[in-house]
Amino acid sequence: MFELEFMRNAYVAGTLIAILSGVMGVFVIARNMSFLSHTLSEIGFAGASFGIFMGWSPLNGMLLFTTISSILVGELSSQVESRRESVISAISGLFIGLGILFLALAQTNSSYATNILFGSVIGISQQNVNQMILLSSLVLVVILLIFRDLKADSFDPIGARVNKVHSSLMSILFLVMLAFSVSVAAQIVGSLLIFILLTLPAASSKYFAHTVFKMTGLAIVFALTGVWLGLYLGYLTNWPVTFFISTIEVIIYAIALFYNSLRNRSE
């Protein structure tokens, strides 16, 4: 399998994506942003088709759209919870529509659309991988730099405020890093299912681990399991990799919930 260049690239890219998702996911879960990460993936779809329409790479289109919208969404965070959800739904509806429009205007064949939506391992070039390495490193460095304050702001916003953590700065930096992560992750799993990797491994990890470090480590392990095994099974069966990845992550999550209910019962 590793004789094939695209499989090697897919594994490198998949590993990056898993690490990134594990790290970001722990904060996505703590900040209750599952819904938002879903929206960002849809916006990513629109960005990718815009990129194709403009003759850029889909990744660059995605970066542009997700970054701008993450900043817009950041402005919304001061809104009332219920209204925020509706506004986010409206934005995501608008962007899916735009994505479909740009794809139609670009007049590429429809396999391009399925690649963006559902992901693909074939299309990953060396150049893609390099750009992904660069972006992932940037995200990880930024997260590392703001780690303590981001952690406090995510896991105890009220306490963080007392400790003079700059909450809106954390929020905007995190959203932009989330936008980058979504764009990187979409390269393999597709924009329709990125939120799976950004939420489920971390959501599962919190039932087994009780420090931020351990949760992050375990979320990375869960994400890697899905991605590595998914790529392998996809290679064997020729079925879509995304199908395997999402199924594996859902199974891990189900096990975590089951484990948690068993533990609660025994207490």
């Binding site: 303590r148 304050d149 306490g159 953590v165 009780h210 420090t211």
Partner: peptide
Amino acid sequence: VDYPLSVRDFVSLSFTGFKFPW
């Protein structure tokens, strides 16, 4: 009830600032 951090890790959140994560 679903809050994941241990009592110890929660208390350690108070060590804020731009320093090493650990």
